[in-house]
Design a protein around this nucleic acid. Sequence first.
DNA 1: ATGCCCTGTAACACTCCTGTCACATTTCCG
DNA 2: CGGAAATGTGACAGGAGTGTTACAGGGCAT
Lengths: 232, 232
Amino acid sequence: MTFKPLIFVAEDEVGQAEILRYNLEQEGFKVAAANNGLSALEKIKEQQPDLLVLDWMLPEMSGIEVCRKLRANDETKRLPIIMLTARGEEDDRLRGFEVGADDYVVKPYLASELIARIWAVLRRTRPELEEEKLEFEGIVLDLAQHKTIRDGEQIELSTTEFRLLRALLSRPGRVFSRAQLIDLAWGTGIFLEDRTVDVCVRRIRSALNVGDKPDLIRTVRGTGYSIDKANK
Amino acid sequence: MTFKPLIFVAEDEVGQAEILRYNLEQEGFKVAAANNGLSALEKIKEQQPDLLVLDWMLPEMSGIEVCRKLRANDETKRLPIIMLTARGEEDDRLRGFEVGADDYVVKPYLASELIARIWAVLRRTRPELEEEKLEFEGIVLDLAQHKTIRDGEQIELSTTEFRLLRALLSRPGRVFSRAQLIDLAWGTGIFLEDRTVDVCVRRIRSALNVGDKPDLIRTVRGTGYSIDKANK
DNA sequence: ATGCCCTGTAACACTCCTGTCACATTTCCG
DNA sequence: CGGAAATGTGACAGGAGTGTTACAGGGCAT
């Protein structure tokens, strides 16, 4: 991917914003941010981001207001917007769509979930961004369609398995610790036994290695797992 | 590496802090330190370090408070922070992320583990520091991939062996005492026989010196070991 | 409510790592 | 040359780490 979309984050809670920035940068996005509605509006006009992640509750100017103002301006009229709303405020969702948000995500959210939505919206708005695929040694992950293929044959993976494989495929060869994999596949701040990763890896392996296909998941004893070529 | 990152250590226990300083300096970092939250905050503003290692429990001002204050200030808003938390305090980890820590390490920790995290965070923040390989005289350690290569051929090393070789390769020519090597490869505070290092070195040697390759690990009688060119 | 699938955890088996010991070899020094 | 100290080497028992299977709880669609 040569093009690096600039994502603008309007979120007032510093911690949330930083985590988000981190995850988005990991994903390969450029990131700009503001912590209140007013400055968000200004900075957006300057920087012309490719997409806006907009918290519903913002000081100075509410998300809905920001949204409306953006839609009223010719330059920003078509800026894709993803709303962050608190759980239970379903009404907000409705109003969000009314004022022109392209999608919404309920807090608390999984980073990977939000990233998936971002890609979806970007694809929708910019068809020239061909659908994102991860590929390695005959394994293809179609992120848009959530499909897994090995050597042309489709593989059935559950959501969690798909996310874990996705993390591994994002950087072939690189070894991920179990903790990192939990962060990437389950979400930052989720606490699970390390062994859970082992079991999930096993499930992926047995789904992936049909027939006599070589096992491409390398176990690095004492450290973690990676996707790799023919480890003897 | 021409650029020497300045690491700021905020840790109240003097012994811990000194060991940490030593290990970080070994790694080639510059180090500044404070033993309470308040002075840490002041010194950080003066010295503008590249990264902060922040103990969770600090006198005067807790780690979480320091973190929050730093995030609230424009100059220090993006300072990468690694939290040190006690084992079992999982809640702290969550709160750590909430207030914007970039990573966390659980005490007691492996010096090499912390150093790895520091590099990871620095790389994330400063992509130009993409240095994930150690190389010397045909030996290549790929830290990200956890692979060892000599003259193009892959070598199988166990975790411990890998860590020990890594310590040696981090500063070619430098002689490490057995105690230092135990700190670096096994972890600070681990007690082992010095002879264990000898055995581990032997294992590395026999894995590395396939064929008639020269032995690059030099034994310094009465002192320790180092990686060095062709010692006859 | 019912049944199915997903999932996290526990339990057990098994591999291979690993720290230590005992003995061989080398080095140093008088 | 002798002896002691340091290091090399091979063997081994115990254990940590991982593979594997089973299962119970929960979500979701019917």
